[in-house]
Computed example of a mutant assay.
Amino acid sequence: MQSSFRTSAWFYFGAAFGITWVFWLLPVLANHGVLQLGQAAQLACLFAGSFGPFIAAFLAVYRDGGWPAVREFAGRSLRYRMGPIYFLAAVLLTPVAAALSMAWLASHGGPPFAVGVSLGHLPLLYLELLLFGGSVNEEFGWAYAIDRLRQGQGLLRAAAVLGVIWGCWHIPLFFVPGLTQSFMPFWVFVLFTVALRIVIVWGYASNRQSILIALLFHTASNLAFNLFEVVDRSPKHDERGFIGYGLIVLVVALLIAFTARCYRRVPPNSIASTIA
Rank of each mutant, 00 (worst) to 15 (best):
L227S: 01
Q153F: 10
N207T: 15
R197N: 13
F51A: 11
V28G: 10
A260N: 02
V252D: 02
M82T: 08
N222T: 14
Q181D: 09
E139L: 06
A220Q: 00
E128W: 09
N137V: 11
L43W: 12
V249A: 00
H170S: 02
E138T: 02
Q36S: 07
G152P: 02
S206F: 05
R150N: 05
L129Q: 04
G38H: 08
W202T: 03
F11V: 15
H108D: 08
H121R: 14
H237D: 10
V231C: 13
A9L: 09
H32L: 10
P68C: 12
A57G: 08
V161W: 04
R240Q: 11
G116R: 05
D238Q: 09
I165K: 02
I55G: 11
Q36R: 13
L59C: 10
L254Q: 07
A9T: 11
A224V: 03
N31M: 09
F140G: 03
A214K: 05
F140P: 01
Y62H: 06
Q2A: 04
I243F: 12
V96Q: 00
A57M: 08
S234N: 06
L223A: 05
T219E: 03
D232K: 14
A272I: 04
M102K: 01
Y12D: 15
Q151G: 04
R240I: 15
A106K: 03
D147C: 13
I146T: 03
L125Q: 01
Q39G: 07
Y263K: 02
L155T: 05
I211H: 03
I271R: 09
A48Q: 04
F58V: 05
G18Y: 11
R150I: 01
V96R: 00
D238K: 08
G38C: 07
S3K: 08
M1D: 15
T274D: 07
A145M: 10
V70W: 01
G65Y: 15
Y126H: 12
A158E: 01
Y86E: 07
S221C: 11
L156R: 07
L46M: 13
I85P: 14
L59M: 14
W169S: 04
G110C: 09
L124D: 14
Y80S: 14
I198E: 02
Y204Q: 11
P95E: 00
E239G: 11
M184R: 10
A106P: 00
